[in-house]
Design a protein around this nucleic acid. Sequence first.
DNA 1: GCAATGGTTCGGCTAACATCGAACCATGAG
DNA 2: CTCATGGTTCGATGTTAGCCGAACCATTGC
Lengths: 230, 230
Amino acid sequence: MREGPNIVRIAALIGDQTRTEVLTALIGGKALTATELAGVAGVTKQTISGHLAKLIDAQLVSVESQGRHRYFRLADDDVVQLLESLMGVAHRTGAVRLRSSPRDPAMHKARVCYDHLAGELSVQIYESLLKRDAFVPGKDGLVLTVGGKRFFTRVGIDVEIVRLQRRNFCRACLDWSERRHHLAGALGAALLERLMVLDWAKRDRDSRVVNFSRAGEQALRELFRLPVAR
Amino acid sequence: MREGPNIVRIAALIGDQTRTEVLTALIGGKALTATELAGVAGVTKQTISGHLAKLIDAQLVSVESQGRHRYFRLADDDVVQLLESLMGVAHRTGAVRLRSSPRDPAMHKARVCYDHLAGELSVQIYESLLKRDAFVPGKDGLVLTVGGKRFFTRVGIDVEIVRLQRRNFCRACLDWSERRHHLAGALGAALLERLMVLDWAKRDRDSRVVNFSRAGEQALRELFRLPVAR
DNA sequence: GCAATGGTTCGGCTAACATCGAACCATGAG
DNA sequence: CTCATGGTTCGATGTTAGCCGAACCATTGC
């Protein structure tokens, strides 16, 4: 009768305010401790401990113990994709949070999606690269062409070193605010990393927003030949 | 404090066995009545009525009244994408249904994803088209090139007529079993439709499986120049 | 060794919600 | 009009699960 994977359990886990608070906090990409997570979720540590146990059991979150601390992070990229997918639907159905802060437009322009860039700018980068044949589809994600490699070399990224990472090198990720794709994988992460090192962009202290400096955005736009800013 | 769309409500709705039964039944693409849905979910009609009201209120499902019947269908493509995304995570975490039927390999090869094709074959088609520059990324999904149009004309699809539909014409959809993209949108739907008319493929009576005839698969492979079958 | 901090386990309380029986409204057939 | 069928509303019931207080284990610092 029933077929396919059991999605109910996963959805039920996300269908709780506290746990979603945890998951969205982890989209930021940084590994957090239980007490930190209890703080952002606004519950006691006993409660958060219970929730984290469930999330780990379901393999949505993974842990690493270091001394008396336990660091929690998302277990896999696909969790990020799932959350962004959920946000897409929530966005369409108008189920947005009441407190739509001034952050909102900034979130749309550029934000962190786990460890890579999301939002308007990121989509433009991805599409510009695609249009210039920077990658072709491969058997597991995207394959960077010789021409594509040049773009990254020019920002100061050593593509061959990035390629050594065990994770997926380069793939597309659906952007909930734009409903289009942006660059993810090790290469996407390396790009965001590099933007921060160059001081072209800075992460907002306590949100997923990424703020570009005037010069940084300018340089990025020229480098990836993005359409002119409005 | 909190930012972004409210995903908890959506996830909580999916996090119920009965409602998920309803949603997955509707991925099949056909609009179903309340009593039919009560049947597949195994609950009484009062119960299903309550669930449907919630799903409609959250805009995951839409209704159309016809006489004394009310036909329920998924409200938007993004719900399908969300469900497939969930299945992807559930698949990775090994949370598959106990009863893994002989249907399972068939599901992986070809199945219906709302109104278009999903599974191994569909991914191959998509990637073959992409490699042959059948589309370029556009501002809202993919744009079919002149070269791409030829592929569809050759199967007997009048692309210009398909383009008239109000829905998104052509876009990519993430495939949970393959973890890669396949073709969706009006064009994807038209292709599946055409395959059935040509008798190259048939839908399984009571599942999402799509069975290809020997000749049909052969023809499809040649037409879209797919890699040789294993 | 002893306190302090990070985290988990246990038990009990409470609220939310899925379920169904029964009654009720709407449409269509005879 | 009358009856049958498709759906919804209401109220009562039972289960689930989130939450916290308290006690407990583990690691670090003094």
